[in-house]
Nucleic acid binder design. Sequence first.
DNA 1: TAAGCTGGTGAATAATCCGTGAGTTTTTAT
DNA 2: ATAAAAACTCACGGATTATTCACCAGCTTA
Lengths: 262, 262
Amino acid sequence: MAKLFWVEDQSHWIDRFSAVLKQADLDGEPNHLEVYKFPEAAKQRIAVMTDQHKPDLALLDAHMNGSDQAGFSVSRALLKKWPDLPILYLSEHSGTEIEEQAITQNDAQDFIAKHQRNIEAVLCWRIKAALKKRQAQQQGEQARLRSGSLEIHTDSWEVFWKGVKLMNPHNPKRPLAPTPRKILRFLVERSPRPLSTEQIADLLEADLERFSYANYRQHIKTLRSAFDAAEGHSGEFAELCQQGRGIVTFGDAHAYFWKSDS
Amino acid sequence: MAKLFWVEDQSHWIDRFSAVLKQADLDGEPNHLEVYKFPEAAKQRIAVMTDQHKPDLALLDAHMNGSDQAGFSVSRALLKKWPDLPILYLSEHSGTEIEEQAITQNDAQDFIAKHQRNIEAVLCWRIKAALKKRQAQQQGEQARLRSGSLEIHTDSWEVFWKGVKLMNPHNPKRPLAPTPRKILRFLVERSPRPLSTEQIADLLEADLERFSYANYRQHIKTLRSAFDAAEGHSGEFAELCQQGRGIVTFGDAHAYFWKSDS
DNA sequence: TAAGCTGGTGAATAATCCGTGAGTTTTTAT
DNA sequence: ATAAAAACTCACGGATTATTCACCAGCTTA
């Protein structure tokens, strides 16, 4: 559960974004949102918060109630207590001195303009990215990609399905081979969008002359049997794929996609 | 002197920003700007760049010459060589899928819309902030290393495995040779990320012409037999490596990685 | 019903990886 | 300058991985 600490003085922005933020898929769980309309109230709250309430990320408006510095004072209060807390600004004053101050002097992780195309989505992407970065730093750089029961350690490239490490189906003592594991990663990263043969070839930096659809199919087969092996050859994964989850064919265009099982 | 690596396919943007970027006060010194108009040219250049040319920051356009992926392929080439290089996108397509891909999948440090108020200044602020963050990260490295049964005294460069000092396998009276020692240290420092031949060559500040994969392999062999010797030639370490711990081949990219035994 | 398509499969082949020993060159210490 | 140590090169071979091929089943369309 991601805990967000949000300070915003204008009600209409709160109305507009709170539902989006609560429901955004940041870590697969529902988010907890703590909103304050006044910087003073926020600061008082920060003073009494314990580590157990520590937010994962703060979202601030820089300019509030007529003062340029209101948001920054909240930021200072937060950073004093938790120096590594990522702070994002959400402001109407992009391109101004406020942005400069936020970025160069107040250790802002990001500064997002309120007035822009598709702002809700942009906000979610950036919060997600900030959380991811934070997590990577915290966990000693343990980069992980998760989707349902699947977990890919993107550093050591180990892949776990329901907690079991995926192995090479032809030789259970050996780990999943490089190309299949890359393909799996790309599929999960782009989930639930499909990846055509050409796109995979591009991502693999393979020659399109060499990398054919037959080829792609073969690697998908390897992957599927690796999943099956991890489940003790029970055929569960094959069933899952039948039901349109796991590794699924797209229907045409020689494409496959990954869909989380949960 | 900050070195910037910039890929941008449209001349008018290059004209508009190059002077600004050259003269921006990023670290108190004049900046060095390397500009490419074609992703292919950029990638070719990256392939032959050595550590001494390593840029401090890359500025990419995502969408170039009609392809959405052109910028990302440059990003991949850069990150493959220098995994911690900060990458900023400068794009006309903010709020679109391109931004999403950049931020959530391509480890973008930032994504800056070309069309915005005061863009020149914003660009400089953000570049400066990214460089500052990078520097702060680099300084936070530790002085002593421990990983499972392995301990490296980074001051005296002695290496202990299960409390036994690793010696040169060819001559048990002599300490482990410098290059294997360094390689082991880099592997452990980056654990559990793999280190390709290219990256090791970079870290050793060796010439890529000289430092080949065969070479790397040979040092790995030396290391493994040093571990084996420390265990009284029992073959335990070889077994450990078989099981994916200790010094492990990555299975791709001519890379190895270290994984703690505990 | 056949032809054309997609997508799954096993087996065969091709390519690559990686460990290895032996030898050569470069570096270092005396 | 000399010798020892370290770094590097090279080529081989077994193992592993990637790719190709031929075939089959199911579906759609003429």
